[in-house]
Simulated assay, not measured.
Amino acid sequence: MARILIVDDSLMMRKTLRNFLEKAGHEIVGEALNGEQAILSYSKCQPELVTMDITMPGLGGIEAIRRIIQVDPAANIVVVSSLGQKHIIFDAIQNGAKNFILKPITEQKLIPVIDLVMEYSSVAASSN
């Protein structure tokens, strides 16, 4: 199972994600309220996967993705956001996010995407 950093400015959303992910056997290694905290926590916690909100106070999710990918091009970032516009999704993927899940979040939407990203990451790592 994966070591995961949760990034979202909503305490309720962080608790929901933590609950779903821990129930599925993942370990939550950190939480962040915005992009600045996400970058610092990524360096400190060395997660295998990050769930990233897009709209947060201060540094937003797209810029945080960009900066994390600059430090670690292999970072596994899954955007979890209520913003469903195509250009936001494209921007997140173009900047390094591996997948995108739209809120409202459900366990049935979240876990298969997390598992898929981790499986792909494992296959990519073993082929190197």
Rank of each mutant, 00 (worst) to 15 (best):
M52E: 01
S127F: 13
G35M: 02
N76F: 07
E48Y: 06
A24E: 12
S41D: 07
D91I: 06
A92K: 01
N99I: 05
G61N: 04
V80N: 01
T55W: 08
L40D: 11
G30S: 05
A125K: 12
T51W: 00
N128A: 15
V7N: 02
M52K: 03
A38H: 00
V80P: 00
N99W: 01
H87Q: 13
M118C: 12
A32G: 01
E107A: 15
P73W: 05
V80C: 07
D115F: 01
T106E: 13
S121D: 14
C45F: 02
D72W: 03
E31R: 05
E22C: 15
I89E: 09
Q85H: 09
R3M: 09
S126M: 14
R66K: 15
D9Q: 08
L5S: 07
S10R: 04
I88D: 03
F20W: 10
I93N: 01
G30H: 02
N34T: 08
A38E: 02
K98M: 11
P104G: 10
P112S: 08
N99Q: 12
P57E: 12
V7H: 02
D115C: 06
E48R: 02
I62T: 05
G25Y: 05
H87D: 15
L33R: 11
S43N: 11
A97T: 01
I93H: 01
A38D: 01
V79K: 02
G35W: 02
L102H: 11
G25W: 07
I6N: 05
S10Q: 09
S121G: 15
F100N: 00
A74G: 11
G58R: 04
G61V: 02
I114R: 00
L11F: 14
G96P: 04
Q70V: 13
S122V: 10
A92G: 03
G84Q: 07
F20L: 10
M1Q: 11
G60T: 04
D53Q: 03
R14N: 09
G84F: 04
H26M: 13
P73Y: 05
S122W: 09
N128V: 14
V50S: 00
H26Y: 12
E63G: 05
E31I: 08
D91L: 07
A124C: 13
Y120V: 14
K23P: 02
Q70M: 14
I6T: 08
I54K: 02
V7L: 07
I6L: 15
L102I: 12
V50K: 01
L17C: 11
L49A: 06
Q94I: 02
F20R: 07
G25N: 09
M1T: 12
N76G: 08
I89W: 00
F20P: 06
S122C: 14
G35S: 06
K23H: 14
Q46G: 08
A64Q: 01
D8T: 10
H26I: 10
T51Q: 00
F100T: 03
I88C: 04
L5K: 06
L102A: 13
S121A: 15
L110G: 08
L5W: 06
H26R: 10
S43Y: 05
G30V: 06
I28D: 05
T51Y: 01
G96C: 07
I88Y: 15
